[in-house]
Amino acid sequence: MTTARTETEVYRPFAGALRPSRLRCLPLAAAGVRVAVKRKLPLLLLYAPSAITTIVFSFVVYGKFTLEASIERGDAPPGMAMAAALAGTIAEVRRLLIQALMNTQVFALLVVTWYGSGLIAEDRRLGANLLYFSRPLTRLDYVLGKLLTVLAFGALAMLAPVLVICAMAAFSSPEWSFVKQESDVIWKAAAFASLWVVSLGLGVLALSSLVKRKALAVAGAFAFYMINQAFSGVLVALFDDPDLRRVSVLENFLRIGHWMFALDEADGHRTWPVADSFWILAGVNALFVAILAWRVRKLEVVA
């Protein structure tokens, strides 16, 4: 073998205008959204239920307030009766809003699973991570970019309907009475939707990082939530202890939802302390984050 030569060279200085921004995850998230919306049919099918729910509930809310106003004009009831009728309407609208929120939970599950499942799995299959990680992109940026993509879709499926219905209620109610009296339900609904979407997003990404095919990740995500739910049902039946519903992730979300919106627990299904649900969900999400950290770290090994 020839003797290795050590060449000398003055390297060209780096030329170009780099932005100092550390938010490298944003272009990645934007690209994720752009890739997903290229296919119109899944977009249409997955968002149709959310859109229909939004439209129906918005009309119902609008109708409640306008109907109330027309009755008030026709019968000209005294002031006290008017106030009582309005309070009843607002309570009814609040109930509708929570119902809409709970309904869109399922749609968000579908949307997040569909759009999130391929994000890491397909990168691994294609080897796109090789292109990402040969750039000044940290693994945290990578995960955040993927998570933001999922959150964008999840928020559109769950948060957007709630906010639209809230806006409809706010504009339809006389003198902004809905906002004045029920402002808590707006932020609580937003908080609950965010919690649900973030947790789902982390779970789906964690599953996506474990496989190399989107289909497997989709199946895995549904299997996780369904088996989890079924298992809790079996435990409840076996031990005749309704508190064992805590084993199910979905039941814990319901428990938190019922607690946040002060819903009646007369059926006695979810009577365990709400703090337990928070701890359980924190644990599950920590597990998802740990899986993500482990798998994304492992992305360096591509045979």
Binding site: L18, P27, L28, A30, A31, V35, L126, A128, P136
Partner: peptide, 23 residues
């Protein structure tokens, strides 16, 4: 490895990767 996203155009894909450099 293939590494390309089929649903993006070549220009969109390369633009995304260049943006990750901070441009």
């Amino acid at each position: 490895q293939d590494a390309l996203y089929d649903d993006l155009t070549g220009l969109e894909f390369v633009t995304l990767l260049v943006r990750l450099h901070g441009y």
